[in-house]
Simulated scan of single mutants.
Amino acid sequence: MTPVVHYPLTIYYDAHCPLCVKELGAIKDYDRHDRLRLVDCSGAEFDDPFARRAGIGAEQMMRSIHARDEAGQWFTGVDVFVLAYRQAGIESMARLWSHPWLRPLWDRLYPWVARHRMFLSRLGFTEAFDRLVRWAARRSERQAAACRDGRCELP
């Protein structure tokens, strides 16, 4: 079940991580309604009153991506990616992250990716994933543009 999200959605991420910067930058590029806010939680000076009140520290945020909606509801890990991709209109990526058969795999794999994100960035995973996200975004835009007057003519 998809949670009710009250936008804007504030996403806390590691701005020192090339993979994180590329992925969230690509998502933000397609956030046509400007409902995603990106906040770097990697600096020593990071202090967020909302996170503090929720008992979420910077160390915890650095282990797993976190997001907070306007109503104060918190999301972590894979849920953040599903919500962000969906908001940006990159539905194919949102469906991939939320697919009922694949979701258990992503839930287990994501902590490993988060823990090794710098190493994966050095391996070139960053550029490959960026291309995939942007390809999916362009595809979603083409599909949306093909729908006129409630009728869709897919290419």
Results as ranks from 00 to 15, higher is better:
residue 136 A to S: 13
residue 18 P to R: 09
residue 55 G to K: 10
residue 13 Y to C: 04
residue 123 L to F: 03
residue 115 R to I: 04
residue 18 P to G: 11
residue 19 L to M: 14
residue 133 V to F: 00
residue 27 I to M: 11
residue 133 V to E: 01
residue 66 H to K: 02
residue 140 S to T: 09
residue 147 C to I: 12
residue 136 A to C: 11
residue 135 W to V: 13
residue 103 R to P: 07
residue 32 R to K: 06
residue 40 D to N: 13
residue 84 A to S: 14
residue 69 D to V: 06
residue 33 H to F: 05
residue 6 H to Y: 05
residue 75 F to A: 08
residue 84 A to P: 07
residue 94 A to G: 07
residue 92 S to V: 13
residue 135 W to E: 13
residue 140 S to P: 03
residue 130 D to V: 03
residue 123 L to E: 07
residue 142 R to W: 02
residue 94 A to D: 05
residue 47 D to P: 00
residue 100 P to Y: 01
residue 98 S to K: 04
residue 11 I to G: 02
residue 41 C to I: 03
residue 6 H to T: 14
residue 83 L to M: 06
residue 95 R to N: 08
residue 61 M to H: 12
residue 81 F to L: 08
residue 60 Q to Y: 08
residue 127 E to S: 05
residue 58 A to V: 13
residue 142 R to F: 01
residue 102 L to C: 03
residue 26 A to W: 02
residue 31 D to E: 09
residue 54 A to L: 09
residue 18 P to W: 07
residue 118 M to S: 07
residue 35 R to L: 12
residue 126 T to E: 02
residue 140 S to K: 01
residue 48 D to P: 12
residue 84 A to F: 06
residue 3 P to Q: 01
residue 33 H to L: 06
residue 11 I to R: 01
residue 4 V to K: 13
residue 11 I to T: 04
residue 88 A to G: 07
residue 38 L to W: 09
residue 66 H to G: 00
residue 132 L to M: 14
residue 58 A to E: 13
residue 64 S to A: 10
residue 105 L to Y: 15
residue 127 E to D: 11
residue 111 P to Q: 09
residue 144 A to T: 15
residue 39 V to P: 06
residue 38 L to N: 08
residue 87 Q to P: 03
residue 27 I to W: 04
residue 45 E to D: 15
residue 11 I to Q: 01
residue 91 E to A: 06
residue 3 P to S: 01
residue 59 E to R: 14
residue 117 R to N: 06
residue 38 L to A: 07
residue 56 I to C: 05
residue 78 V to R: 12
residue 79 D to T: 13
residue 61 M to K: 11
residue 102 L to V: 08
